[in-house]
Design a protein around this nucleic acid. Structure first.
Lengths: 230, 230
DNA sequence: TATAAAACATGACATTTATCATATTTCATT
DNA sequence: AATGAAATATGATAAATGTCATGTTTTATA
């Protein structure tokens, strides 16, 4: 684990993408003075389910997955967190150990803000608290949607929707492939199925000319077709 | 729909079970003066997915289900909300139409607090905002757990866990049957399966002496056995 | 570049779950 | 109490998905 000092929060371009944007310059200076930074390599664990977090992370660069271990021993990916987002707020607020593990999907840069500083702002800055609340309300709505999809849709539909989601949320590279690179196993853990089933459906989608693959990379060819998948 | 005046918020025993407990007496008096009350009969809809709510509800008595319609035409029950809880906060906070429908499972008494009053408190009372935030953080964690269960567990396991959840959260009547009475279809919509499948598993559980049924009522006989279901 | 490990892919088969048909029971209403 | 509607129950069968085996390709690393 590598800790280094990075730039100042008040000048950081990342903050505009999350609730930190509601803080005053003065508050940002204070946070900046006590934050630490951390570089995490692809595959490394940022924190693990059950751990007690001593603060929150702000993702300066990279992408990670939030996973939860099911009692049958399989991992479920609950959410992908990208550059600009915060990590660990929920557990800080409900004052519990984290319920999810965070694992880097590529090399990441993180800033860590100690709990005491954040709690201070939650006490005093209503805008900040309300913005965190708004973000969490959105997360909750998304979670509701995921529940319905898991409960009511087929593996084919869930994979199609996952591909569309990743395409729309995180975009594509210049060659048209999805910019978030996931293994087939990761896809399986997002849609909640066996890796083999995921691979089979990917093969079907290829045959149906809905997607193309370049190595493990996936390119969406017919997004409208994917939307119509049943 | 029946509207009537009920008691005063500041004297209401229900408030201790939700975030309203953090409000000052003065704030409660103000809210009380503009709240309205509503009686809803079993099966009636309190609000519907897509509607714009003009405030939040406080459940004075009764139970309702929060459901979401899947694109395949099936309803998914996301949550049961009982006496003491609030209804509609999420949509109020993210300033969107509600993403779930609320339908009474038995006769209910509700108090309705207009949006303007609640938003006023969210602006000014940090304790209130923070408590709403805490509740939402808990809801989000629960939603994560549901996602994992949906994605990774069998219908048998999900039904077993649902029975245990209802038993532990809402208790039993004097004859030992679950105090929240759900139809087989409701159970199916909670665990995300076909009604017939739910009925079959209930029959299995009966044969395995894990539960007993009295009409449509269910009594848990061997809760440890239910926990071991695979 | 060689080599082993990991990831990807596919077939064969088992298991789970959905669907459709059809009884049976329960419940509300007359 | 009679009656029809809704809910519960069960069988037969189809469809979806999981599991295990095995082969191929990709990737990392010596």
């Amino acid at each position: 684990m590598l800790w280094e000092t990075m730039g100042k929060c008040e000048q950081c371009i990342i903050k505009q993408f999350n609730s930190l944007k509601t803080l005053t310059n003065e508050e940002l200076v204070r946070i900046s003075s006590c934050k630490t930074s951390r570089v995490v390599k692809k595959g490394e664990t940022i924190f693990e389910e059950g751990e007690t977090l001593k603060g929150i992370y702000c993702v300066r660069d990279g992408i990670c997955k939030l996973t939860k271990l099911s009692s049958n021993g399989k991992d479920q990916i609950i959410k992908l967190v990208v550059k600009g987002e915060l990590l660990g707020q929920r557990s800080l607020i409900s004052d519990e150990s984290v319920n999810l593990s965070a694992i880097a999907l590529n090399d990441m840069e993180l800033c860590f803000i100690p709990k005491s500083e954040i709690m201070n702002d939650l006490q005093k800055n209503t805008n900040f608290t309300f913005d965190i609340l708004r973000e969490m309300a959105i997360d909750l709505k998304e979670a509701d949607d995921i529940i319905v999809n898991m409960a009511q849709k087929s593996v084919r539909q869930r994979l199609a929707e996952t591909l569309i989601y990743i395409n729309d949320s995180f975009g594509t590279k210049s060659d048209g492939t999805l910019s978030v690179l996931l293994s087939r196993e990761d896809f399986a853990n997002i849609i909640g199925t066996a890796t083999e089933s995921t691979i089979r459906v990917i093969s079907q989608f290829k045959k149906e000319k809905l997607i193309a693959t370049i190595g493990k990379q996936i390119k969406i060819i017919d997004i409208e077709g994917l939307r119509r998948v049943e």
